[in-house]
Write a protein that binds this DNA or RNA. Structure first.
Lengths: 112, 112
DNA sequence: TATAATACCTATAAGGGCTATGTATATAGC
DNA sequence: GCTATATACATAGCCCTTATAGGTATTATA
């Protein structure tokens, strides 16, 4: 039954955490899209890594809202879009981190 | 700007945590709908309490999927729908708790 | 008697992520 | 040379989840 499956809860979790973790990996370094997914996967054991279908629209949204800045690189003749967090993005990340930090404490208190 | 507002991240957080916290408050006691919202609000400082517009459809969904059992009480001539978690609901809660527990740890590791 | 709290419910909309699909280059193994 | 895999980008259509705004009704309080 779906509610007893790890997959169901993982997909719910992902629904809200992708954006946070995208900002998180960008807050300390500039990365291109493909690398963002891999880094988020690495620090969350795969659970919160956005698929390409959600990653690229989110990055576009972040650029449009000045959370990240886009620069195009060419590596071996191939285009790479490198994203760098802006001051506004850092502030957004700080707010998100505070909000999630509090909630993480509530979760741990609930399940302990 | 919305991304720098606490409200934006709180609404994202809520999107996935409501169901977890609804099961959480029911896992140790039977409650009626209105009380569920208040208890979730109490243990999460208000951040994860579902609105009525989401609570009642979710409870109906949980009943339809046998996560909770519904009993109707009458208190002072007024109807009250009391929800009791089922075995399947307990198992679902265990899975959800494990999934969220792991993620909470990733979040705390990220922001520390 | 008016207001707030309790207690339930639903239709519509808004906002997320996913799946499937498409394009294209680089690299490793055979 | 060929093939499979990894890298790298992008979008349309779908489904799921919550919120907003509206509705009904009783009880307690001022």
């Amino acid at each position: 039954m779906k509610y007893e499956s790890q997959e169901y809860w993982a997909s719910l979790i992902k629904m809200s955490l992708s954006r946070f973790f995208i900002l998180h990996v960008l807050h300390s370094q500039s990365l291109h899209g493909y690398e963002i997914t891999k880094q988020v996967a690495a620090i969350t054991n795969g659970c919160c890594a956005p698929t390409e279908g959600s990653l690229y629209p989110v990055l576009k949204e972040f650029v449009n809202n000045d959370l990240v800045r886009l620069e195009v690189e060419f590596v071996g003749g191939r285009e790479r879009k490198v994203y760098t967090i802006t001051d506004s993005g850092q502030r957004a990340y700080a707010v998100a981190g505070k909000a999630w930090g509090e909630v993480a404490a509530y979760i741990l208190a609930a399940i302990k």
